[in-house]
Design a protein around this nucleic acid. Structure first.
Length: 892
RNA sequence: GGGCGGUUAGCUCAGCGGUGAGAGCGCCUGUCUUACACACAGGAGGUCAGAGGUUCAAAUCCUCUACUGCCCACCA
């Protein structure tokens, strides 16, 4: 295997194995009625463009879970798909058209839809490719697009059913209107921003007498739509005026002064202008008092015919003119600076216009009730838990969901209006005639549905619903919904509502919410916003490899916490890949040198370090399994990393080198191979490509290769064996490493060289080989006193004075005296002794505290006692060492 | 206005009742020791934001404060 290159070359290896996996069909689960499947439905990336690092994160997390469960032997489905993303997509394509100087109206609805489709298809292809680059082991044979016929039929079916149950209705309600997109949007799609504006005090002259009522408003232009002035019924200032009227300036409309509790007497002047068509609160007041609605704006936010002299003006231009006119009439009392929150379109950032409009709505309360119940009673678990509270809050205060959009891209609303009788026909399949009067003059509603309506159905529509398919029966409900917490309301909440409604069963059992990847400035990564700050995964993949990227994105991370991704993390990931690569290279080369075919099963550890590494590995497996089950993936990955680097490479391989070099039997190669093989399997869900590459190379050199699967991704995930723990071996090894540490420490301090020799000497002196599980390290060490731990050249000239190393369980005498600065050494020892004295004092006072003794559990007390004994012992030795230092005569 | 986070080593973060506080990167000192300089060995660096409280025991639980980020909200 000498052809193994010195460093990992990610690109070629990644595509090689991905193609292999796809060819083998590993991503497609077999439906096995006897086994419970593991199912993740992929959050749908929008077709609006390339993926960014946020997508890389979700792909990594979901792939990790998927690969892990697959290796546990469960039929595993990770279902991919893409979303047509109504507004988002339309906005982008409109922008492209605008660059060519065209509008969508010019080319027409059909052409426009074709144009979007073409663009969307290209993006879908790119998105799929990028997910594949990341190693996504999702079942591409089941891939779906929200506008596919199946999911589209599901959308119509859900609509019709909800309509028939009275849960979808059409009505004139206050909605958020985006003048740029020229469509209604839901409350969730509105982003509130704090705006520093003004509060304008406007005088409305009383109709029947002298004087004014002054109202305060942030939007003076809306006075054109006022239909009343409201005051609080308890407000003494205005009591006399209730029932009277004022005349709107300029347009001379007489409107009543009414009393309503909604008015806050302390705000502004205590008199509130009522503009029912353009303000939600005002609308409520108007409905209580049967006030008329006056809509003063066109869809593009220019003023309409109701605005009289201001007709045709854009809303802000109108504001300026209104203010100037009022000022001219001395009706503008004052202007105060005022900061308040104003809604903006989540897609195009245009200021939202609240507006009464005829739209379709989902009545959400009944759906929400069931959805709340599902989380409350534990059928769904939300991770991290704190988001459950946020979920409840939102669900409990949910308002009806405006689902109609005045767009051209999306699922058309399945409603037909009869031109003759005026009634509606709501149907899954386009009707040829009105179901009420039979007239053929039926016209379909021109609007489309909110994208999130189809997304909400995705957990079942992507599996074939409303058809009763094998997939639907087997794979619903899903296991885990993994997504970012930013779409908890948009998507997760609605999937739960719709899943329960359509399927009568929760759509998944666990919701795992990951944090957001932020850029250096702490901004959330997004590609659809104007200030696109999204970082593509392509560059890190090219420079560091996919495995390094996946590692960087997930190691040590926690659910729900945001993170930033920097160079250093990517480098750390790459370094780990390199470490693993070279450790394997070493093992393969050693196998070559010994002409050995190792085996990885049925090993019986005889030697201390073999028992130790086995025990450590077992402990790791146990921890990892527990952590994975608790969704603590970052910690699991961290522990695997620590094991491979700090235990396996730093200690086991280093010791094995000595054994190999001196041809000691038994050979460590079986344990090297075994530990490596299991480590690779443990790591595979996190870093699929290197692990497959290395595993395949290793497999070639194994005697049991015939019984091994064709790929690591279908090999079983390691499981912990209760018999695999060797506490005694761990204890001894701990002592040993502590000895070696101390020696190295001294070496560095006294600049002794060469460096690696210490471990080697100890080993070749048969120190380690003499240690069995029952061995007493002190005895063993005693045999080799004074321990020869120096380099050859020093060995001869260090017969002088010994220095005693104080260790937890042993004394090691190191002949170093001739190179020691006694003064400095004395100082060091004194310092150490002071520190130990302090700790002893603390322990003693704790152990004489009756409260501690009576209330703390016995194992805690025991440990304190043990510690105290150790420290006292250590202090004694320190003192001895000090006295030896001051009387340099003994020859040890 | 309401809610939820964060504040731990120079930086990015983990730990979230059991007692000398961890990682990666950075820094300092050595080492090209034939798996790996994308490395090895050694080291420095922290009153765990502040103040109270609960407990035998608090970075970890409670309360308040400060700074910071985010989410929700019909503040005219």
């Amino acid at each position: 295997m000498s052809e193994v290159p010195k460093a990992y070359e990610s690109g070629k290896i990644e595509s090689k194995w991905y193609d292999f996996w796809v060819r083998q069909g590993y991503f497609t689960p077999r439906i096995d009625p006897d086994r419970k499947p593991f199912v993740i439905v992929m959050p749908l990336p929008n077709v609006t463009g390339d993926l960014h690092l946020g997508h890389a994160l979700f792909v990594t997390l979901q792939d990790m879970m998927t690969r892990w469960r697959r290796m546990l032997g469960e039929p595993t489905l990770w279902l991919p798909g893409t979303d047509h993303a109504g507004i988002a997509t339309q906005v982008v394509v409109e922008r492209q058209l605008a660059e060519q100087g065209k509008t969508k109206e010019e080319i027409g609805r059909e052409e426009f839809a074709k144009l979007i489709l073409k663009w969307a298809n290209k993006n879908r292809h790119d998105i799929r490719h990028q997910q594949q680059l990341l190693g996504a082991s999702c079942d591409w044979t089941r891939e779906k697009f929200t506008l596919d016929e199946g999911p589209s039929e599901a959308v119509r079916t859900a609509f019709v059913r909800l309509y028939n149950k009275g849960l979808i209705y059409r009505g004139e309600r206050m909605i958020n209107w985006c003048p740029r997109c020229q469509t209604a949007i839901s409350d969730l799609e509105v982003e509130h921003k704090d705006i520093t504006g003004h509060l304008y005090y406007i005088r409305y002259p009383l109709t029947e007498s002298e004087g004014f009522v002054t109202v305060a408003t942030t939007r003076p232009e809306t006075f054109l739509g006022d239909t009343a002035v409201a005051v609080n019924p308890e407000d003494k200032r205005y009591k006399k005026l209730i029932g009277k009227s004022v005349t709107l300036p300029i347009i001379d409309r007489e409107i009543p002064i009414i009393a309503d509790d909604a008015v806050d007497t302390s705000f502004g002047t205590g008199a509130l202008k009522i503009t029912p068509a353009h303000d939600p609160t005002d609308l409520e007041v108007a409905q209580r008092h049967n006030l008329p609605l006056v809509d003063i704006m066109n869809p593009d936010a220019t003023m309409n015919e109701n605005a009289g002299p201001y007709r045709g003006l854009e809303r802000f231009a109108c504001r300026d003119k209104v203010l100037a006119d009022l000022k001219g009439k001395k009706l503008l009392e004052k202007i105060e600076p005022y900061s308040h929150s104003v809604g903006h379109c989540g897609r195009c950032q245009m200021m939202i216009e609240p507006k009464v409009s005829l739209q379709w709505f989902v009545q959400t309360q009944p759906l929400a009730k069931a959805a709340i119940e599902a989380v409350k009673d534990g059928r769904i678990t939300i991770i991290p838990e704190r988001f459950a509270k946020i979920y409840f809050d939102w669900m409990e205060n949910i308002r009806d969901w405006c689902i109609s959009r005045q767009l051209w891209w999306g699922h058309r609303i399945p409603v037909w209006y009869c031109q003759d009788c005026g009634k509606l026909t709501v149907s899954v399949d386009g009707p040829s005639a009105c179901t009420h009067c039979g007239s053929k003059q039926v016209i379909q509603d021109p609007d489309v549905l909110d994208t999130w309506f189809s997304s909400a159905l995705w957990t079942h529509s992507a599996l074939g619903w409303p058809e009763d398919t094998d997939d639907l029966r087997y794979f619903y409900p899903g296991s885990v919904m993994e997504t970012g917490y930013d779409i908890l309301f948009f998507w997760v909440a609605r999937m739960i509502m719709m899943g329960l409604e359509n399927m009568g069963e929760v759509p998944f059992h666990t919701v795992y919410l990951h944090g957001l990847i932020r850029d250096k400035g702490g901004e959330k990564m997004s590609r659809s916003k104007l200030q696109a700050n999204a970082m593509s995964p392509a560059e890190p993949i090219r420079d560091y490899g996919v495995d390094a990227l996946r590692f960087a994105l997930t190691v040590g991370s926690t659910a729900g916490n945001d993170m930033s991704l920097g160079q250093d993390k990517l480098e750390s990931g790459r370094n780990f890949v390199n470490k693993l690569w070279n450790a394997t290279r070493f093992i393969l080369r050693s196998l070559d040198a010994e002409q050995l075919e190792a085996q990885v099963t049925e090993l019986q550890p005889q030697r201390l370090e073999d028992q130790w590494i086995d025990s450590q590995l077992n402990k790791l497996v146990k921890n990892v399994t527990g952590l994975m089950e608790e969704f603590q993936f970052g910690e699991a990955e961290q522990q695997i990393y620590d094991f491979i680097w700090s235990k396996f490479c730093d200690w086991y391989i280093e010791i094995a080198k000595i054994r190999l070099r001196s041809q000691l039997t038994p050979s460590p190669l079986p344990f090297l191979a075994n530990t490596l093989e299991k480590s690779l399997r443990l790591l595979h869900p996190f870093m699929p490509f290197v692990t497959e590459e290395l595993w395949q190379s290793l497999k070639q050199r194994l005697r049991d290769k015939g019984r091994m699967p064709a790929s690591i991704m279908i090999a079983p995930y390691p499981f912990a064996d209760d018999k695999g723990f060797a506490p005694e071996a761990e204890r001894v090894m701990d002592s040993l490493t502590e000895i070696i540490h101390s020696i190295r420490n001294m070496r560095a301090e006294y600049k002794v060289k060469p460096n690696r020799w210490i471990a080697a000497r100890i080993y070749t002196d048969e120190l380690l080989s003499g240690l069995t599980t029952q061995a007493n390290i002190i005895e063993t060490l005693a045999k080799v006193r004074p321990l020869t731990i120096l380099g050859r050249q020093e060995r001869e000239r260090t017969k002088d004075k010994a220095l005693v190393l104080v260790l937890r369980e042993a004394e090691v005498v190191v002949p170093l005296a001739d190179m020691v600065d006694r003064r400095a050494e004395e100082q060091r020892l004194l310092g150490e002794s002071e520190e130990i004295k302090g700790r002893i004092a603390r322990l003693e006072s704790r152990l004489s505290d009756s409260a501690f003794l009576s209330k703390a559990p016995s194992h805690v007390i025991d440990r304190q006692k043990q510690k105290l004994a150790t420290l006292e012992d250590k202090l004694k030795r320190l003192h001895r060492e000090l006295s030896q230092l001051s009387s340099p005569s003994a020859d040890n």
